[in-house]
Design a binder for these strands. Structure first.
Ligand SMILES: [Mn+2]
Ligand SMILES: [Mn+2]
Ligand SMILES: [Zn+2]
Ligand SMILES: [Zn+2]
Lengths: 145, 145
DNA sequence: CTGACTAATGCAACAACTTGCAAGAGCGAG
DNA sequence: CTCGCTCTTGCAAGTTGTTGCATTAGTCAG
């Protein structure tokens, strides 16, 4: 099954109609293998189909997020970031000092969610968390100053 | 010391100049004792001084946030919320199903931050976290359906 | 294959911020 | 008190994201 056919099947499974705009948005995110801003997605989509409207892309991103096919995340700075949700879940540690965005596996975050469930009966939905703070490198530099 | 004098002293301590716009913004948040949107702050400020410009309020909110005098939080829906950071830190559990916003004490969140520090040397800065998910009430209703 | 139902789209207006620049106003030195 | 440095503000324009409405186009029953 081609990449495009996979995307179409994924769309159908999530209850969406298969339209060229939605396929283009999905493909943009799958091939980027990175966080993309809405503006970047619009740009990429328009390389193939210049007529696609901005608001369609915004709406599509919202729909895909609601269907849990992509993550929508606010890092401290700049635009909202979207990412295709592949294999296993991950999160990010964002340094307020140097701007580094490191990856964080789901283990610790899942443990945190577990705690919330036990103590508050709250079922946390943490798909792609951005934790702000100061990275190890910057923390050491500040300490040894 | 009056409420207004306290606010002025707080501003000076944080390295700000004491201006009427900044005092009005601080007072709005201190008296609300709740989360306020930027729009609500603008509205409140203008009840006293109708001439204050919107962008001044936005800039002031950003400055107060940088000085850690107020929190800036994105609950899943609606505008960004600002809150005066009083006595002890707290967080929120936000239900995606019924919209309830419950309070969460700092204990569990601090434990999470502690974990990140031990395992990654990352000093997390979680002042006022909004954890999305499903509250106990909604989770039970769904389970017993 | 056809038709009808309804989701998806384009468009334009709107809402929620953000930014560059020039004018105004705190505040500390003298 | 006065001066001057620099932070702060107003204004206007720009960005990013949202929404109502009329039109288009997937999908599925028949
Ligand atoms: Mn990611
Ligand atoms: Mn709060
Ligand atoms: Zn860093
Ligand atoms: Zn609920």
């Amino acid at each position: 099954m081609s990449c495009r056919e996979e995307s179409a099947a994924t769309l159908r499974r999530a209850g969406h109609r298969v339209t060229s705009a939605k396929l283009l948005v999905i493909e943009a995110l799958r091939h980027a293998e990175d966080h993309l801003s809405a503006t970047a997605v619009i740009e990429q989509v328009r390389r193939d189909s210049p007529h696609v409207n901005e608001s369609t892309v915004y709406r599509t991103l919202g729909a895909l997020r609601d269907s849990r096919l992509i993550s929508e995340t606010t890092f401290g700075h700049g635009e909202v970031a979207y990412e295709w949700l592949g294999e296993r879940p991950h999160h990010h540690l964002v340094c307020n000092s140097c701007g580094a965005v490191d990856e964080l596996s789901d283990e610790i975050v899942a443990g945190f969610a577990e705690q919330l469930s036990r103590t508050h009966g709250f079922v946390a939905d943490l798909q792609h968390l951005a934790v702000p703070g100061v990275c190890a490198k910057c923390a050491n530099e500040t300490a040894g100053r």
